[in-house]
Design a protein around this nucleic acid. Structure first.
Length: 141
DNA sequence: GCCAACGTTGGC
DNA sequence: GCCAACGTTGGC
Protein backbone atom coordinates (compact mmCIF):
# COMPACT_ATOMS: atom_id res chain seq x y z
CA UNK A 1 0.00 0.00 0.00
CA UNK A 2 1.36 3.40 -0.97
CA UNK A 3 1.31 6.47 1.24
CA UNK A 4 0.54 10.02 0.15
CA UNK A 5 0.11 13.57 1.29
CA UNK A 6 -2.52 15.88 -0.15
CA UNK A 7 -2.80 19.61 0.44
CA UNK A 8 -5.86 21.77 0.75
CA UNK A 9 -6.31 25.38 1.68
CA UNK A 10 -8.78 25.29 4.57
CA UNK A 11 -10.41 28.42 3.13
CA UNK A 12 -11.38 26.39 0.08
CA UNK A 13 -11.84 22.94 1.59
CA UNK A 14 -10.99 22.08 5.18
CA UNK A 15 -10.54 18.90 7.17
CA UNK A 16 -13.78 19.68 9.03
CA UNK A 17 -15.61 19.68 5.70
CA UNK A 18 -13.91 16.43 4.72
CA UNK A 19 -15.09 14.86 7.98
CA UNK A 20 -18.62 16.23 7.58
CA UNK A 21 -18.88 14.96 4.00
CA UNK A 22 -17.15 11.64 4.78
CA UNK A 23 -16.34 10.90 1.12
CA UNK A 24 -15.36 13.81 -1.10
CA UNK A 25 -14.01 14.12 -4.65
CA UNK A 26 -10.44 15.47 -4.59
CA UNK A 27 -10.79 17.89 -7.47
CA UNK A 28 -8.93 20.88 -8.86
CA UNK A 29 -5.48 19.39 -9.38
CA UNK A 30 -4.05 21.16 -12.44
CA UNK A 31 -0.44 20.16 -12.31
CA UNK A 32 0.93 17.25 -14.30
CA UNK A 33 3.19 15.91 -11.60
CA UNK A 34 0.44 16.01 -8.99
CA UNK A 35 -1.99 14.47 -11.47
CA UNK A 36 0.37 11.59 -12.17
CA UNK A 37 0.44 10.84 -8.46
CA UNK A 38 -3.37 10.92 -8.36
CA UNK A 39 -3.40 8.37 -11.18
CA UNK A 40 -0.98 6.15 -9.24
CA UNK A 41 -3.24 5.96 -6.19
CA UNK A 42 -4.91 2.64 -5.44
CA UNK A 43 -8.14 2.11 -3.57
CA UNK A 44 -7.29 1.69 0.12
CA UNK A 45 -4.11 3.81 -0.02
CA UNK A 46 -3.87 6.28 2.85
CA UNK A 47 -2.88 9.92 2.75
CA UNK A 48 -2.14 12.73 5.16
CA UNK A 49 -4.51 15.68 4.86
CA UNK A 50 -2.43 18.86 5.07
CA UNK A 51 -3.73 22.40 5.55
CA UNK A 52 -1.72 24.82 3.41
CA UNK A 53 -1.58 28.58 3.93
CA UNK A 54 -3.65 28.57 7.11
CA UNK A 55 -2.45 26.19 9.79
CA UNK A 56 0.34 24.62 7.71
CA UNK A 57 -0.05 21.33 9.47
CA UNK A 58 -1.06 17.73 8.95
CA UNK A 59 -4.51 17.45 10.48
CA UNK A 60 -6.04 14.20 9.32
CA UNK A 61 -5.83 10.90 7.51
CA UNK A 62 -7.88 9.97 4.48
CA UNK A 63 -8.19 6.84 2.40
CA UNK A 64 -8.54 6.56 -1.37
CA UNK A 65 -12.16 5.49 -1.84
CA UNK A 66 -12.20 5.66 -5.64
CA UNK A 67 -9.28 5.62 -8.04
CA UNK A 68 -8.63 8.35 -10.59
CA UNK A 69 -11.51 9.35 -12.88
CA UNK A 70 -12.23 12.48 -14.94
CA UNK A 71 -12.44 15.57 -12.72
CA UNK A 72 -16.01 16.91 -13.00
CA UNK A 73 -14.71 20.42 -12.29
CA UNK A 74 -12.52 20.32 -15.41
CA UNK A 75 -14.20 21.43 -18.64
CA UNK A 76 -11.41 20.13 -20.84
CA UNK A 77 -11.76 16.58 -19.57
CA UNK A 78 -8.00 16.24 -19.34
CA UNK A 79 -7.56 16.24 -15.57
CA UNK A 80 -8.49 13.60 -13.05
CA UNK A 81 -9.61 13.43 -9.44
CA UNK A 82 -9.99 10.69 -6.85
CA UNK A 83 -12.49 10.22 -4.04
CA UNK A 84 -11.12 10.59 -0.53
CA UNK A 85 -12.73 9.22 2.61
CA UNK A 86 -12.06 10.70 6.04
CA UNK A 87 -10.59 8.10 8.41
CA UNK A 88 -9.76 10.20 11.44
CA UNK A 89 -7.92 13.20 12.82
CA UNK A 90 -4.25 13.51 13.70
CA UNK A 91 -4.58 14.12 17.47
CA UNK A 92 -1.51 16.37 17.65
CA UNK A 93 -1.32 18.11 14.25
CA UNK A 94 2.21 18.06 12.87
CA UNK A 95 3.19 21.55 11.74
CA UNK A 96 5.43 22.50 8.86
CA UNK A 97 7.76 24.16 11.36
CA UNK A 98 8.11 20.89 13.25
CA UNK A 99 8.71 18.95 10.06
CA UNK A 100 11.40 21.44 9.02
CA UNK A 101 13.02 21.09 12.44
CA UNK A 102 13.16 17.30 12.14
CA UNK A 103 16.36 16.19 10.38
CA UNK A 104 14.89 12.80 9.42
CA UNK A 105 12.24 14.62 7.37
CA UNK A 106 14.60 16.89 5.43
CA UNK A 107 13.99 15.01 2.18
CA UNK A 108 10.21 15.06 2.37
CA UNK A 109 8.41 16.40 -0.71
CA UNK A 110 6.55 18.94 1.39
CA UNK A 111 9.82 20.77 1.95
CA UNK A 112 11.70 19.95 -1.24
CA UNK A 113 8.84 20.89 -3.54
CA UNK A 114 6.71 23.31 -1.63
CA UNK A 115 4.26 23.97 -4.46
CA UNK A 116 3.37 20.36 -5.18
CA UNK A 117 -0.12 19.56 -3.87
CA UNK A 118 -0.10 15.75 -4.13
CA UNK A 119 2.99 13.74 -3.27
CA UNK A 120 4.12 10.29 -2.17
CA UNK A 121 5.35 9.70 1.38
CA UNK A 122 7.81 6.94 2.18
CA UNK A 123 6.88 4.21 4.64
CA UNK A 124 9.53 5.49 7.07
CA UNK A 125 8.29 9.07 6.91
CA UNK A 126 4.71 7.89 7.26
CA UNK A 127 5.51 5.95 10.43
CA UNK A 128 7.52 8.81 11.90
CA UNK A 129 4.86 11.43 11.17
CA UNK A 130 2.19 9.16 12.66
CA UNK A 131 4.24 8.84 15.84
CA UNK A 132 4.81 12.60 15.97
CA UNK A 133 1.07 13.21 15.53
CA UNK A 134 -0.04 10.68 18.09
CA UNK A 135 -1.98 8.77 15.47
CA UNK A 136 -3.57 5.62 16.92
CA UNK A 137 -2.02 2.39 15.63
CA UNK A 138 -5.23 1.41 13.89
CA UNK A 139 -5.16 4.56 11.75
CA UNK A 140 -1.42 4.55 11.21
CA UNK A 141 -1.27 1.12 9.64
C1' DG B 1 2.14 42.36 1.61
C1' DC B 2 6.27 40.39 -0.11
C1' DC B 3 8.97 37.05 -2.29
C1' DA B 4 10.84 32.52 -4.01
C1' DA B 5 9.80 28.71 -6.84
C1' DC B 6 8.07 27.25 -10.81
C1' DG B 7 4.68 26.55 -14.57
C1' DT B 8 2.71 28.70 -18.77
C1' DT B 9 2.43 31.81 -22.58
C1' DG B 10 3.90 34.17 -26.49
C1' DG B 11 7.35 36.73 -29.27
C1' DC B 12 11.29 35.95 -31.85
C1' DG C 1 13.85 26.10 -29.28
C1' DC C 2 14.99 30.00 -26.31
C1' DC C 3 13.73 33.25 -23.07
C1' DA C 4 11.29 37.20 -21.04
C1' DA C 5 6.97 38.25 -19.02
C1' DC C 6 3.51 36.94 -16.28
C1' DG C 7 0.44 34.14 -13.18
C1' DT C 8 -0.05 30.97 -9.25
C1' DT C 9 1.18 28.61 -5.06
C1' DG C 10 2.46 28.79 -0.62
C1' DG C 11 5.64 30.20 3.10
C1' DC C 12 7.04 34.03 5.83
Amino acid sequence: MARWLVKSEPDAFSWDQQVANKVEPWTGVRNHQAASFLKAMARGDRAFFYHSNIGKEIVGIVEVAREAYPDPSDETGRWVCTDMKALGPVPQPVTLATIKATPELAEIGLIRQSRLSVMPISEEHWALLCRMGGVPAKLAK
